[in-house]
Amino acid sequence: MLRKLLKYEIKATARLFLPLYLVLLVFAGINRMFSIIHFESFNDSAFGGITAGISMTVYITLMAGTFVMTLVVLIQRFYKNLLGDEGYLMFTLPVHSWKHILNKLIVSMIWVTSSGIVALLSVLILVPLDISLKEFLRQIRLFGIQLMDQFGVGVYLIGLETVFLSFLFLASGILMIYAAIALGHLFNKHKLLASFGMYIVLGTISKIFLSVYALSIGHFENIENVGTFFESQIAFFLVFIYVTVIAAVYFLLTQYILKKKLNLE
């Protein structure tokens, strides 16, 4: 059933994101074109200058819009599709409620990641490739060599772990939003406002938890100094435990509310 949920969730969201991505990339291309013909004194003319200015403004707006929309859709798909009127349909499907949460989470992660990739891609289109990209790649290689010197072949493992942890952080961030919305749903009035308040509360609680966690570890391990490969592995593991625990708590809290405390209007 999760596969079917994913199919419809992707359909419902792709129709919003794909056109936006396309327009963003097209405008990056247009701006790039202006910067090329700049040398042929097109931009010196008033018309050329204004056109280039407008197209740059549009591009920047689109870029900001992509990030705003990613966040708005992430919230809307949970709030409207599960806790709004559409919830009457979704929660009477023969599907476990944890699958609804997992479905929303996976699809949100896909879109956050692709928005990031498309934004990066648009910057690469916009900025003259020959200079900046080469320099960029050179810097990455230098950084890689540095790491290699320090950790040896373990650098590949560290790279993988970094990617994995980034996704785990992303997941826990999204689950925190879901948990806040679910908690806000328990209020009779001003549910959106309550959700916002709950988000702040959850953020504060997880920060307190982090401090306690870090302090208790600090007693027997100094994790600030990750000089060797072995120490880096301990640090990864400790961060992994922290993120997994809070993500699990948010997930279970959301699941509990959706299952036992649901009260659609």
Binding site: A12, R15, N81, D85, E86, G87, Y88, L89, T92, L264
Partner: peptide
């Protein structure tokens, strides 16, 4: 169970 709620649960897309 086939359920018809009072609310309109149809999406807009």
């Amino acid at each position: 169970v086939a359920y018809l709620p009072e609310n309109t649960y149809l999406n807009d897309w």
